[in-house]
């Protein structure tokens, strides 16, 4: 653990769990990330907000090892993970709920959850019970094909599936996208509940207001660079942020 090695950390701040420094990545000729730097401390909910195409999803995909970074570093619990294979990163305790949910449509709900625990060989029942408690609808629909679920149910499944790997840090990409408002509230509640039970969360959201309310801290991502950072409340009160991301005058 590289607890609190940054200058800005106060003595009592919890240790840094994820540290991204100067991360750059490209898709072919497109420079998707130029310089992304952020930190997530143990027990925090940190959100990453920004416009469409700012590089939010690419940031998560690069941290997860799906997109290869071209420069910069990613450290998880004090260990460099940039350049590592995606499955090794999951095994290390860092899971992602990807944008658009990406459930396996022709596997059952139960099988989807099993896939989340692919790297584990121990008893899955306690974890299944926890996921079912969090999202009871997943228990009701256990034998249904995931492709037949509604968008909100699929999102719950995607979150439950990621939890099955027992991550210490969960990255979530746009969990509110395309989902009925009532379910969005339910999903954000679940995120807070998980966080209270010790899960650290890095949240990417278009719905900046909801994300900032829920987060301890946040970063603003603009054209592949992290620009502003502050507590959720600070950013909610910042005029520039309000104008650019909260749709206020």
């Amino acid at each position: 653990m590289s607890a609190g090695s940054t200058g800005s950390a106060s003595a009592s701040a919890p240790p840094v769990m994820l540290r991204v420094h100067g991360l750059a990545a490209r898709y072919g000729a497109i420079e998707a990330l130029r310089e992304v730097s952020l930190e997530v401390r143990v027990g925090e909910i940190v959100s990453l907000i920004g416009a469409n195409g700012a590089g939010k999803s690419t940031t998560l995909m690069t941290i997860s090892g799906i997109v290869r970074g071209t420069s910069g570093s990613v450290e998880f619990e004090g260990r460099r993970i940039d350049g590592e294979r995606a499955d090794r990163i999951v095994a290390g305790g860092l899971a992602q709920v990807p944008e658009g949910r990406r459930v396996f449509p022709r596997l059952t709900v139960r099988e989807n959850l099993e896939m989340g625990a692919y790297l584990r060989s121990d008893d899955l029942r306690p974890d299944l019970a926890r996921v079912h408690e969090l999202f009871p609808v997943l228990a009701e629909r256990a034998n249904q094909l995931a492709g037949t679920l509604s968008g909100g149910e699929q999102q719950m499944l995607a979150i439950g599936r990621a939890l099955m790997s027992r991550p210490r840090l969960l990255m979530m990409d746009e969990p509110s996208m395309g989902i009925a408002p009532l379910l969005v509230a339910r999903i954000f509640e679940a995120v807070q509940e998980l966080n209270r039970h010790g899960l650290t969360v890095l949240l990417v959201e278009q719905n900046a207001r909801a994300a900032l309310k829920l987060s301890h801290r946040a970063y603003v991502l603009e054209t592949g660079r992290t620009t502003f950072t502050g507590s959720g409340a600070e950013l909610l009160g910042d005029d520039r942020i309000r104008r650019a991301y909260l749709g206020e005058g």
């Binding site: 799906i66 995606a86 990406r102 396996f104 896939m115």
Partner: peptide
């Protein structure tokens, strides 16, 4: 089997499969 489910998962969504830790 675990392999068979991983095969179907990979066929249905390879990126999600990798995010689940499937090589």
């Amino acid at each position: 089997t675990r392999l068979g489910k991983a095969m179907r998962a990979t066929a249905q969504n390879p990126v999600a499969a990798r995010l689940m830790g499937i090589d």
